[in-house]
Design a protein around this nucleic acid. Sequence first.
DNA 1: CTTGTGTCCTGTAGGC
DNA 2: TGCCTACAGGACACAA
Length: 276
Amino acid sequence: MPELPEVETIRRHLAPFLVGRTIRNVHIYRRDVIGFPDSGRFQSELAGVRIKGVSRRGKYLIFDLTRDRSLIVHLRLSGHLRLSNKDKRLEYERVRFILSHNKVLSFVDPRVLGRIYLVKDKVFPSVLNGLVRMGLEPIEKGFTAGYLGEKLKGRRAKVKSLLLDQRVCAGVGNIYADEALFRARVKPTRLAGELKKNEIIRLAQTLRRVLKEGIHYLGTTISDERYLMPNGGKGEFQNRLMVVGRKGEPCRICGVKIRRTKIGNRSSYYCPCCQN
DNA sequence: CTTGTGTCCTGTAGGC
DNA sequence: TGCCTACAGGACACAA
């Protein structure tokens, strides 16, 4: 569930700690976590590289390395990155990066859906097509009502499904999609191509605002298993959710009970009164 | 191309 | 109590 605000928060915590450090060695406890190349090459090619910077694209975290390499991490549902200097393997630890001065960066992932990739010369294997084909992030300059309107035009899919499409709204996931739709007063089941111009304007604006607010409040920790910061700290945005996880509770605006429905096998929360 | 569904993966919650 | 099933969900494969 780490979405853009969570990944950005992780990036901001990691960068000052990691930049300038060298990766001495890598322990792989679960090989299927390595998305590219094979685990043997992954391990050998990483030994001795230095971390030059940490960036982010959508929900992907990108470590810029020496030797023209990039280490790319996608946390998916339950992946965490933890900083420590512990010798002992952590619970659910899948990969461990031993850094200079015996510091440790651990990839912890109970559900093993997260993936780590190592690419050279910015040549992306097909398993990273999602990164290559990614659209604009709502917090980018170019993400305007015009851009969003173009993406939604003529589409008969439900608007929520398209907000979750990374080619449309990079970095948006289930929580922030529902929260943006509520704030824009748009029902998630509406067909994308049938939104009014005003609704698209509101949606572009609330997507941007809700992601920025999520970053400001250090992300959403609904359960420890899903998202914690690299030092183990929790986010704060869960305290500001308007609809997510509030089925049956009164809407904070109108008092009507929040509903939950399924869209594309994904739970969606909305207010039947405020959202049309 | 578009849209909807199933799958991956494992711990947890809830039903009986 | 203990077993079983449903569920969580981002990305992608695949079907229609």
